[in-house]
Design a protein around this nucleic acid. Structure first.
Lengths: 106, 106
DNA sequence: TCAAACCGTAACTCATGACTTACGGTAAGC
DNA sequence: GCTTACCGTAAGTCATGAGTTACGGTTTGA
């Protein structure tokens, strides 16, 4: 039910790049901000959006906060995409069948 | 390479509802607009965004324009999600292995 | 040909969001 | 305790996008 948050979160290119980096290895906010042309607070806000969407996990290492990707969060998006995919294919097959019957009737 | 357009297109709730309806059966612009609390031009603009993203297919039936979902367009998004999923799981497994070695060394 | 239906686009308003600087709060090192 | 590093949040600016109304183009039926 929260794939809407995930989709709007992944709509931003910077947040997509953050997600792709965190998919490879966990990183702190400062490490992430160093690889982007935006300020550190901007990264922090992006991380908040991704965290609210449920695709991240945070662990505090002293003063540092290490973010990592949470596969469980992405599972909802995958599920929604798969169901959409299935209904589209089923509708396509049904339509093809009716068209075949119409041709046969002719 | 165009999953960015698809993601930003699917970030809007109205466009998601349009996609879900078109996944079940093809519809014209007027039929779609009838089921939404927004005007017909708004639906038309949403359809343009979805079409530019490559997830729709259009066929002209006289004055009507029938839109349907194009599974090939969604395939790119699925592919991106799957690759992200795989790298995340691989990184998670690698991290778990290093943690196991650290415990063993202790 | 005239009218009506169907649709796309232009122009505009208004809300949302991405970014900045500035500030406050917490943990480690001297 | 004091400084430094690290991070989150508040306030404000500016661009983008979703919505509207108005208009023009195309196709069908009378």
């Amino acid at each position: 039910m929260s794939y809407g948050l995930i989709l709007s979160a992944l709509a931003d290119p910077t947040r997509r790049a953050i997600v792709e980096q965190l998919a490879r290895e966990p990183k702190s906010v400062g490490e992430l901000a160093h690889g982007f042309p935006v300020s550190r607070p901007a990264i922090s806000q992006h991380l908040k959006v991704l965290n609210d969407a449920g695709v991240l996990a945070v662990t505090s290492q002293g003063a540092r906060r290490v973010y990592r990707l949470d596969p469980k969060g992405m599972a909802e998006l995958r599920q929604w995409l798969d169901s959409l995919w299935d209904t589209a294919l089923a509708a396509f097959a049904a339509e093809a069948e009716t068209m075949a019957k119409d041709n046969q009737r002719k």
